[in-house]
Deep mutational scan, measured.
Amino acid sequence: NQASVVANQLIPINTALTLVMMRSEVVTPVGIPAEDIPRLVSMQVSRAVPLGTTLMPDMVKGYA
């Protein structure tokens, strides 16, 4: 089972991601792979992401 990136806190719209905002977790459906966490740092979210939400490619500007 592949771990995905999950929000560790509420991430407001247009916030630049930092390591403390993200954790890896095995979830369904699968989201952005956990190994991409270093690449996500400083990228902005395109919408508010609630705590515990799996990050999907369309939620991060410039990821897809």
Rank of each mutant, 00 (worst) to 15 (best):
L10S: 11
L40K: 00
N14I: 03
P50V: 05
L51P: 12
V41R: 05
M43P: 01
S46Y: 11
I32Y: 01
E35M: 08
N1L: 15
E25L: 04
V60D: 02
L10V: 11
S46T: 13
T28G: 06
V27T: 11
R23A: 10
N14L: 09
P29T: 07
A16L: 13
G31P: 01
K61F: 06
R47V: 14
L55K: 00
R47E: 15
L17Q: 00
P33K: 07
P33F: 13
L19T: 13
A34L: 04
M43Y: 10
V5H: 00
I37K: 07
Q9C: 05
L17W: 01
E35R: 04
V5C: 05
R47G: 07
M21I: 03
V26Y: 09
L51V: 15
R23F: 05
V5R: 00
I37T: 08
R39E: 08
T15S: 08
A34V: 12
R47T: 12
R39L: 12
A64C: 15
Q9N: 10
I32R: 00
I37G: 05
M59V: 06
P33M: 12
S4Y: 03
S24R: 05
V27D: 02
V5K: 00
G62V: 03
T15D: 04
M56L: 14
M21S: 04
L19S: 09
K61P: 11
T15G: 05
T54V: 10
V26Q: 14
N1H: 11
K61T: 14
I13L: 11
P50R: 07
A34C: 08
L10E: 15
A34Y: 06
G52C: 09
G62M: 07
N8Y: 04
A3N: 15
R39P: 00
G31W: 02
T53Y: 09
D36L: 07
L55G: 00
M56N: 08
V5E: 01
A34S: 14
L51K: 15
N8H: 15
Q44S: 11
M59H: 14
R47K: 13
S42D: 06
L10M: 12
T53P: 01
Y63C: 05
S46D: 13
Q44H: 09
T28H: 05
M59K: 02
Q9T: 11
P38M: 13
P57M: 09
A48D: 14
M22S: 01
K61C: 15
L10Y: 08
E25R: 04
N14Y: 10
V30M: 14
A7C: 04
L17H: 00
R39N: 14
G52F: 05
G62F: 07
V45N: 03
L51S: 15
I32V: 08
T28S: 14
E35K: 08
V27Y: 03
P33I: 15
T15Q: 06
V41Y: 04
T15L: 05
S4F: 03
I11F: 02
I11H: 01
R23N: 07
L19M: 11
G62L: 06
G31I: 02
A34T: 13
R23Q: 14
V27A: 06
L17F: 02
L40W: 02
T15M: 09
Q2P: 15
V30E: 15
S46G: 13
R23E: 05
S4Q: 02
P12I: 06
D36P: 01
G62K: 08
S42P: 01
A3W: 05
V27Q: 11
M21Y: 06
